[in-house]
Write a protein that binds this DNA or RNA. Structure first.
Lengths: 345, 345
DNA sequence: TTGTACGCGTTATCAC
DNA sequence: GTGATAACGCGTACAA
């Protein structure tokens, strides 16, 4: 019918020709950079709409050197934390005109897999990378990449530039342990998350430290792996410890399993044993009993990480207000004072 | 120190010069296409490593016309389903040499927002799009886009090309309702998901149809919105209906809220009321009682959708075996025969 | 087996 | 305010 090229999408040249202007003018109209007479602009836009023209991102970025692309390095998992984090990252990126591309590595992947995923992102032209995986920062290969491509660790966001590593994780453990101690419990047991994750290690350390600070010798760690199943196994272990009255579990999901095991063993929560977990997933309030937990503001974390990253890319100080990312203790029904407060078992 | 250009990343030209070959040879070595003398290849690779050269994706795709980029259109939510779906998509894409870029729209976004997000993906050069949002397929604007860019709806995957829309969703409802009916319940109440989602509507319709097929007049739908809170509200409603003995809830998360409300009202599950939900999230087995639920194989769904999409892009019949994506009923402890089977209330 | 020339669609530079 | 023209870095076609 129409003598237009059958398949290819229209280019700037097509628009320019049809509008009777140069491609440069089209470019100016599209980007809004440089001045164009309003009437010319209108004419160009009319042709743009008519042809359904859209800029070719690859060509634009080749010419300009910019991609406005952010990489997200993620462990491929359906855990709540990853999903919530992604949401925040996506939002902040889109709000600032950036797009996000994801490189996922398998759970428990090797450092080499991280590096390879990082390379994929760089090759795609990512101008910055949000790292949502537990990489070892001291590997030279990682250091090198992070030096040439702006990167930020999602769990490491903080308002101060010189903030110590992973403030949040330590705060989480402290909040949980102190709540339990303040309730009158003599000590607090700990069910850790998967050791593969830095968060897990950091919470364990902070749990230990908080106990020591109060002059309490930490009991042995009961290992978990984030899953409810591992929480259940840990629950059976704890049920067999008669003098245990308080537990700090590193995730809500594990808490569900833990409490189930405890109840099956005839130990009620919180009457016999108090439980504090971490995350505050949507279901935390609907556990039986409702979970006392330390909320992690994942979405805010993702937003904050992204905003800082963009600021870094653009050489700016900040981009808008950084959202609040402090963990907060949400007290519900899974914690209570011990039966015989202050009494030695 | 070294007289190399200070900042810019090395290009094919740099490699070619240093290796004493043409850029074409470098290209051949990198891509593995065309034959190169092994010795030459080694020499080139040595320079590549030395310089840390990596292909510039934008330039390559501009020249070749291919991006090997897949778009993912997603509702930005931390719901389990989205996360699990993404995992499957990511995996299948990576396994076939594709990368994934995400465009998220807000929950309850307008059709215009979908279109706009779709455009973003096209502009970025996505060769295909996995649609993980409840778009209206009959909008001309959507049709047009799906025609020019291969697209697949994640919940619509099936092995047969001519499969009717959303087989899976209807199967889910049927599985749930028939299980309850076969147990001896006289009718089945339904707590729906957010009407914004097609899945929700489709399950409701299939629930209705299944009842009608058995000669039962469907009771009014109790509306939910996927959240545990809405499940809780629905539970209060149902608790007030004395003759209700069986409920089909459209998500596990709502089931948690529902059961909590039921228990608070003095109605036990499954003795007084049986509950079947949908998803089989990790916590389903750790609800009290453990949830009887229809498992949705999200990751497999994501993988299947992606494999089909890639096949479509490459004009092939298939790419490897499509994973099984049928929903399956997982019977646990939240369902039982009614107290007085066969008796009219 | 290897090299040369060109074009991909856009932006940047510098005239006009 | 607008238009030529030259990059951007790579792949393709074709020649050697």
């Amino acid at each position: 019918m129409s003598p237009r090229q059958p398949d290819k999408s229209p280019s700037q040249v097509d628009v320019a020709r049809l509008a009777g202007v140069s491609t440069q003018t089209v470019s100016r109209v599209i980007s809004g950079q440089g001045s164009v007479r309003p009437e010319t602009a209108r004419r160009v836009m009319a042709v743009v709409d008519q042809l359904g023209y859209r800029v070719h991102a690859a060509a634009a970025s080749l010419a300009s050197g910019r991609t406005r692309l952010l990489g997200l390095l993620l462990v491929s998992t359906d855990r709540y934390s990853s999903a919530a984090l992604s949401v925040g990252i996506e939002r902040a990126a889109a709000a600032n005109g950036y797009t996000v591309t994801t490189a996922a590595v398998a759970d428990h992947a090797s450092s080499e897999a991280f590096l390879e995923a990082f390379d994929r992102l760089e090759r795609q032209g990512a101008e910055g990378v949000v790292i949502g995986v537990p990489v070892e920062l001291d590997r030279p290969a990682m250091r090198m990449r992070m030096e040439r491509t702006p990167s930020i660790r999602s769990e490491r966001v903080s308002l101060a530039d010189d903030a110590p590593l992973a403030v949040d994780q330590r705060a989480i453990a402290r909040l949980a342990v102190e709540h339990l101690l303040d309730l009158g419990h003599e000590t607090v047991w700990h069910v850790s998350g998967d050791e593969y994750w830095l968060e897990s290690q950091q919470r364990r350390e902070a749990w230990e430290q908080t106990l020591k600070d109060r002059g309490i010798i930490p009991p042995p760690v009961i290992p978990g792996d984030w899953t409810p199943e591992s929480g259940y196994r840990a629950g059976r272990t704890i049920a067999a410890i008669p003098h245990a009255t308080a537990v700090f579990v590193s995730s809500d999901e594990m808490a569900f399993g833990l409490i189930r095991a405890l109840h099956e063993a005839g130990r009620t929560v919180p009457d016999d044993i108090s439980v504090v977990s971490v995350d505050d997933i949507a279901l935390a309030a609907y556990a039986s009993p409702a979970l006392t937990t330390v909320r992690q503001p994942f979405e805010a974390l993702g937003r904050a990480a992204t905003l800082r990253l963009i600021a870094q890319i653009e050489g700016r100080e900040t981009v808008g207000d950084l959202p609040q990312t402090d963990p907060t203790l949400v007290v519900r029904a899974s914690t209570a004072p011990p039966r015989a407060p202050g009494t030695t078992t």
